[in-house]
């Protein structure tokens, strides 16, 4: 049960139940769809940027608690950040959920540290990182993202 509580922390359960920024963004100038065929997670990330800064972002779709909470927290944290910083944060987040980082999550991850438990569950890494991959795709190309065949 201790591992489970590590994975399903209160913050994650809360964001799953009451996802933030969970709507379509009408004035978005970037969007992309992300899909995880393994569990059927499907989400669309909407972004409004001025070229360097993420002015607003949101998401829509359905998925497991991990993917939904991850998208919810991501959209909460990245508002107002530069796209460059967002990508850097994604790298750190990815290192954390794949367990490539030491035992302590990077301080910059802040609230995102609640996903540290994911590294104990390799089959759930794709769920945690789906929103981030989709965001990256929305900003850089707008192509559909699928976690199938991904080396996550």
């Amino acid at each position: 049960m201790s591992d489970l509580r590590e994975l399903y922390q209160e913050v994650i359960l809360d964001h799953n139940k009451n996802p933030r920024n969970f709507h379509k963004l009408d004035n978005a100038n970037h969007s992309a769809e992300g899909y995880n065929p393994l569990c059927g997670d499907q989400l669309t990330v909407f972004v409004k940027t001025d070229g360097t800064t993420i002015q607003d972002l949101s998401f829509e779709g359905h998925g497991c608690a991990i993917s939904k909470a991850s998208a919810s927290l991501m959209t909460s944290i990245l508002k107002g950040k530069s796209t460059e910083d967002a990508f850097k944060l994604f790298d750190k987040f990815h290192h954390m959920v794949t367990g490539e980082m030491g035992s302590e999550p990077d301080a910059e991850l802040g609230k995102l540290a609640v996903f540290a438990g994911v590294c104990e569950f390799p089959s759930r890494v794709k769920c945690a990182s789906l929103a981030w991959h989709t965001l990256k795709s929305a900003i850089s190309s707008g192509e559909q993202v699928s976690t199938e065949g991904d080396d996550l």
Binding site: M1, L4, L7, Y8, C39, G40, C64, A65, F121, R124
Partner: peptide, 21 residues
């Protein structure tokens, strides 16, 4: 509860089921 979350929790209890489409 999404089926994928069910699958992970059941696995912790030793119960192997399939989740997905």
């Amino acid at each position: 509860i999404h089926p994928h979350d069910l699958g992970t929790i059941l696995d912790q209890e030793g119960v192997a089921i399939r989740t997905g489409h």
